[in-house]
Simulated scan of single mutants.
Amino acid sequence: MVPLGQPLIPTAMQQPVVYLQKTFSKEEFPFENLSGAEFERCSFTECDFSYVNLSGALFTGCAFRLCRFVVPDLKRVHLQSAVFEECQLSGADFGQCEALGFSVDFRHSKLDNCSFRKRKMSGTPFSKSVLNDCFFTESDLTGASFDDCSLPGTVFDRCTLKGADFRSASEFAIDPAQNNLRKAKFSTYNLAGLLSGYGIVIE
């Protein structure tokens, strides 16, 4: 096992670097290469993943708390049952992650300019989070929930939102003509978010 802080550059002749049930606290990884590393049931607290090369890395059952992600390289990253709590994520392109097994959970987090293009995210929970100028394009959000979330500037384009729960969400704009909203849940106070693209004035 290679200590963090040293370059992790697995080659075709090397076995992946594996971390099992390890706790990381206040680690700073800016510009570090964690490509191909494997993390299983690890926890990260107050860690900085800004501009980190995570390409091909595997995170299984990992928890991130109070962590910072600024434009991380997520090409072919496996995120399986990953929990983000009180994290700040900016410019993260989750559409580059491996589709197989993709599973995330966001709690009390702030996401800016993040993309979930073509991600299958059935049942994904977003709780008490702010999604600012994020992009859901051709995403499958069947049964997803946006509990007490604010979504200013976030785009939903050709998404499957069947059964998704927006009852306590705010500041969203969703075009029913461009998205599948069958049995999606809204409250009477936020229905205006479905009409913003039609020039209708609601008083």
Rank of each mutant, 00 (worst) to 15 (best):
S81P: 02
D140A: 13
S168H: 06
A92H: 00
F186G: 01
T142E: 15
G5M: 07
S90Q: 13
L8Y: 02
C67S: 10
G123E: 15
A184Q: 06
G91H: 12
D175Q: 04
P3H: 04
P10Q: 08
S115Q: 15
S50F: 03
C97I: 07
E46Q: 11
E138F: 11
Q178H: 09
L111D: 00
V18S: 13
E86D: 11
G91E: 07
T142S: 15
F146P: 02
K26R: 12
S109D: 13
F69S: 00
T124M: 15
E40W: 07
P176F: 09
P7L: 06
K26E: 13
E38H: 14
S115A: 15
C67I: 07
P3R: 09
V70K: 14
D93M: 08
G193K: 03
V130I: 12
G163Q: 04
M1W: 06
R182A: 12
G56L: 00
S139E: 06
S43M: 11
L141I: 13
A184E: 02
T142D: 14
N53T: 04
V155K: 11
S43I: 12
P7A: 10
L151N: 00
T124E: 10
R182Q: 15
Y198R: 15
E171M: 11
F102R: 09
D48Q: 04
A169L: 04
C42Q: 13
C159W: 00
F49L: 02
R182Y: 13
A144W: 01
T11N: 03
I200N: 07
A92W: 00
F126D: 00
C42K: 08
T137V: 13
H108N: 10
F116P: 04
N33M: 04
F64C: 05
T60S: 09
L111S: 01
L151E: 01
R119V: 10
Q14R: 12
R119T: 10
Q96R: 12
R117P: 06
V83Y: 08
F106N: 01
Q21K: 12
S55F: 04
C87E: 07
V104L: 15
F69N: 02
R182T: 08
V52F: 02
N53I: 03
L8V: 08
Q80A: 06
V83D: 05
I202E: 09
A144G: 11
V17E: 02
L194F: 08
F24Y: 14
D93L: 11
P72E: 03
S25I: 13
V77T: 08
P7D: 06
L191A: 10
F135K: 15
L161S: 05
C134K: 03
F44T: 01
T142Q: 15
T137S: 10
F146G: 01
L111K: 01
K75A: 13
K22M: 11
F146M: 13
A164M: 07
F135E: 14
L131P: 02
